[in-house]
């Protein structure tokens, strides 16, 4: 809390930014009232919220300088963890998603310890390979996971007054999770923790000489990041109802958060959310109709363009300071 007060001292534009973001989120909560007929729009927006939450989780780790190519591992384990928990213990999805998040966090913490000495491209490579391991287990532990047949009948979310698993339920669940996660990430990045990550990203050795415990911060950051990704996977599982190993432990869910966070702007708190909204809408309303089979070529192009021409992403183009404290 004290550091946030500090932030307020340093950045007079902090409140207007927070107000804009809050207003925008409230507006999104009102969308269903206006566009309730267009269930396709609701679906697309729901998907973009899920991706935004996943990208935020990914970006928290990226803030420390660690680029992960393996968030599908945490996402997939979250999906399986939550689905298995709900199916075996007959619990409500709102309970089981915590089990999913925890599963993601545990795997993330484990990989954080295992890969502690790896940096840069080699950390990225190790996380890329990591995805195959839970996938292999999910594929072959048939008595638990039914292997490649996948899990069926995963219970849907139910909200009072709304039809079970309707588009509206998923919309509200996804938007609420995104809002909570955004708040958590904003709090972390504006605390001493966030400052430590900023320092570590720029110069790990110097950071240590001013008292930053690099291993500790990296470990808790990757754990929270894995928790977020696990929750996202869990929400995905309960919204879809069916999961199988190749579907959740796929390159797709490793690539998406990175693409969206980098494209939106990884140095800003809100960047990943902006990236997810823009790219998902572009994908579903422009690319999907043109290239039904290979519409995700958009994501490949987006990331290549980002690396070549706009290292700060969209938010960077809008003038967000790369190193900003609030960044929102």
């Amino acid at each position: 809390m004290k550091v946030i007060t500090l932030t307020l001292h340093l950045h007079q534009r902090f409140f207007p930014k927070v107000l804009t973001v809050t207003g925008f989120i409230l507006l999104l909560f009102l969308v269903p009232l206006l566009a309730i007929q267009s269930s396709f729009l609701l679906q697309v927006l729901s998907t973009s919220f899920l991706y935004a939450a996943l990208s935020l989780s990914w970006n928290l780790l990226a803030y420390s300088g660690h680029i992960s190519l393996g968030h599908a591992a945490f996402f997939g384990l979250g999906a399986y963890g939550s689905a298995l928990f709900a199916l075996n213990f007959d619990t409500d999805p709102f309970t089981s998603i915590w089990a999913g998040g925890l599963a993601g966090a545990l795997l993330a913490a484990f990989s954080g310890i295992l890969f502690a000495r790896l940096r840069g491209a080699y950390f990225a490579l190790a996380t890329l390979a990591l995805v195959e391991i839970p996938k292999m287990i999910a594929d072959n532990w048939v008595s638990l996971t039914r292997g490649s047949l996948g899990l069926l009948n995963i219970p849907p979310f139910k909200l009072p007054l709304i039809n079970a698993n309707s588009n509206l339920t998923i919309y509200l669940v996804n938007l609420s999770s995104l809002t909570i996660l955004l708040l958590v990430v904003a709090l972390i990045l504006n605390s001493r923790w966030g400052w430590a990550l900023r320092a570590l990203r720029q110069d790990e050795k110097v950071s240590m000489t001013i008292g930053i415990n690099s291993n500790f911060y990296t470990l808790i950051t990757i754990s929270v990041s894995g928790f977020g990704a696990g929750i996202c996977g869990a929400i995905f599982a309960h919204s879809i109802g069916i999961i199988e190993p190749g579907m959740v432990f796929s390159l797709h869910y490793s690539a998406l958060p990175m693409v969206m966070a980098l494209f939106g702007g990884r140095f800003s708190v809100i960047g990943p959310v902006v990236g997810s909204l823009v790219l998902t809408l572009l994908d579903q309303f422009v690319f999907q109709p043109i290239f039904p089979a290979g519409h995700q070529i958009l994501y490949g192009l987006a990331i290549m363009i980002t690396i070549l021409f706009m290292p700060g992403g969209l938010m960077g183009l809008l003038g967000a300071r790369k190193h900003g404290i609030t960044g929102s």
Binding site: K2, V3, R192, W195, R198, Q202, V206, H323, I325
Partner: peptide
Amino acid sequence: RPFKEQTVFENVLLGHLMSRPRLMDPDDVI
């Protein structure tokens, strides 16, 4: 090896923030 993306003030502030076991009052830090 300054933190290049940070301002001069923030660089010094980082030194302060990271070395103390608990945070001081923001006014005092500044």
